[in-house]
Design a protein around this nucleic acid. Structure first.
Lengths: 356, 356
DNA sequence: CTGTTAGCGCTTTCAC
DNA sequence: GTGAAAGCGCTAACAG
């Protein structure tokens, strides 16, 4: 039987640990076969200048030794990790997982791995995430920032280092980099228009935090729809909140307790709208006769509950695919980065029992 | 103004790319400050043997240069990446994201990064995932295998290389490595017992694929509950399926079309049960009078729909935390790996309108 | 307290 | 067709 040689460190460790904790390297293969590591490397990477017989022997020995190339060493050498980072603020609702899957499909096809980071809506965590991704030398970044993020310097670092960043869903206008958004303004405008057309006049808006650009756009869509139909804007009916559902519960109750309560509610997203439905039902009010409700995103749950939730659908996995595609475009350019692009995807109103 | 030196490659690249695409290294800092890279390294890592003034200068220059340590180089040197891989078969339902969050919290506290891989219920993808994680030299692995996986050799490689693997949710009994499961058998037994106690006698079971260990355990719990109450087992009422919801729809309809249709259904998981509720309602049958339904996992949606879904709750993020803790235990041991452990967590029946 | 040296695993010239 | 040598960025002996 042929002896299996092991590279440097392992020889020493062998005394204590046996072979178990050593990962085979090209040097191990080279020594066992009496070749140089250059030849082994060539055989493994499919370089043409290797004799067919040699290549076979190398491949066979590699399999026998469970050889697995060390991506760390290659990345260190080539200065490219073939890895893309994705930072999302949460992933318990369907939205971000679906975006991630869309992005991953496109990136995997192009040979990129994906590292997913969960900032948990915390600015601190988000900054830590960017540091970790920088340290692990990702080639690019996809990001949807937290609701707390108001300072974007941690993303500017990527820009300075020439690492492309693509913002999606929660985008940052003042930063360079490509962006993928949906037509939040138009979606909100149509949603509120729909409520008005069904006869509603006191339409409340449970808005998202001002720090998130799509919250602002949806608010503007709401405001312009009211103006379009000459309905006075009542500031008491507009509440901006931090997206934690127990707060939504409090605010919906507050709105319903007003001397002149709303006859409809446009919520920043579906979880908020669903929470509102619960509150409204628990108070014995009829939906949509007493209070109609519209959400945003078309969460799968919206079709399951009763009444079904009218909502503004967004092409969720398309957001991920587009973001990935824009990043790949940046990554493809060897020298000069191509100009950043912004993609805005369409939204679509889905009418269900909560409004008609 | 002081000149900022740049290490080797950058000098050449500078002609073409300017400085933009160069990431500062300790050599850059060392040259700029007229120090050796060892001293810079020591200052940066907080080694005691550095003059306070020197440390300050280094830290300041590092910040000025946007220095970010290269984790690749460190990992190559230390043979540890401080990174743990997690492979999950899907993450559109709440379950796996929540497990991941639980695991991530524990691992982050111990200084580990997490790379999440999505096998998409595909054996091929899962094997590719393990290869990628091996190549990127993760220190450990958390995994819940796909429904297609029947050959586990790709996990045995980790074992051979001394990289600890912890299985959760879908565990593999014949493999070494720690495991985290819930009491699927007991949960199923109690769920079916509950149905029997509410007067049901023809209880169908929409089971998961035989390849998944918890499907088998839940099936056994179902069978033993029937036996315990001397209710004959009718094979026509047991259907094992592949967890794609459109199939669930077909099978539920099939069951309801039987000459002697079931008066209750125990579903392998909540999405299946919710699909069943839809079918049953659409056929004008009353829930639970005509057909009662029980699910498994307590998906948040189960509390939102009408009627609410009776279900077997599992401590989802605890599964993640426990899996991470078991992995850390393996990782902590420098030389000999401690013996693998198996943790079984309790389940709890949550009774809602779909059964009473 | 600081510098010198070696080497982690790999690819890539440059020789032969 | 193959080998020798250099070097990616960093840490850790070993010297002073």
């Amino acid at each position: 039987m042929r002896t299996l040689f092991l590279s440097g460190k392992a020889f020493i460790q062998e005394k204590y640990y046996i072979v178990k904790n050593h990962q085979a390297t090209i040097v191990d293969i080279a020594r066992t076969l009496n070749l140089s590591k250059s030849t082994v490397s060539r055989a493994l990477t499919g370089h043409p200048n290797v004799k067919a017989g040699t290549r076979e022997k190398v491949l066979e020995m590699a399999a026998q030794m469970d050889y697995q190339r060390n991506q760390l060493a290659i990345s260190l050498l080539t200065n490219r990790t073939q890895t893309v980072g994705i930072i999302v603020p949460e992933f318990l609702s369907f939205f971000f997982p679906k975006v991630i899957i869309g992005a991953q499909n496109v990136l995997a096809e192009a040979g990129y791995n994906v590292v997913i980071c969960h900032s948990n809506e915390s600015y601190e965590t988000e900054v830590a995430n960017t540091k970790a991704l920088l340290a692990s030398r990702v080639d690019g970044l996809l990001v949807s920032h937290t609701k707390e993020t108001r300072n974007f310097d941690h993303f500017r670092v990527f820009e300075r280092k020439g690492i492309p960043v693509v913002f999606f869903n929660r985008i940052v206008e003042e930063l360079g980099g490509s962006k993928v958004a949906v037509d939040d303004y138009g979606g909100a405008f149509r949603a509120v228009g729909h409520l008005i057309q069904t006869g509603k006049r006191r339409i409340a808006h449970l808005a998202g935090p001002d720090s998130i650009q799509n919250s602002r756009n949806r608010l503007n869509g709401y405001l312009d729809a009211l103006r379009r139909y000459d309905i006075p804007v009542d500031p008491a009916l507009i509440i901006s909140y931090d997206l934690t559902l127990d707060k939504a519960n409090i605010y919906v109750n507050h709105l319903l307790n007003l001397p002149q309560p709303p006859d409809a509610l446009f919520a920043i997203n579906d979880p908020t709208a669903i929470e509102a439905l619960k509150v409204i039902k628990s108070r014995g009010l009829r939906i949509p006769q007493d209070v109609a409700v519209v959400g945003f995103s078309d969460d799968p749950v919206s079709a399951l509950i009763e009444p079904g939730l009218t909502t503004v659908a967004q092409p969720v996995d398309e957001i991920g695919r587009q973001a990935a595609a824009l990043l790949l475009k940046q990554l493809a350019a060897d020298d000069e980065r191509p100009e950043a692009e912004t993609v805005v995807l369409e939204t679509r109103l889905i009418v269900r029992g909560s409004t008609v």
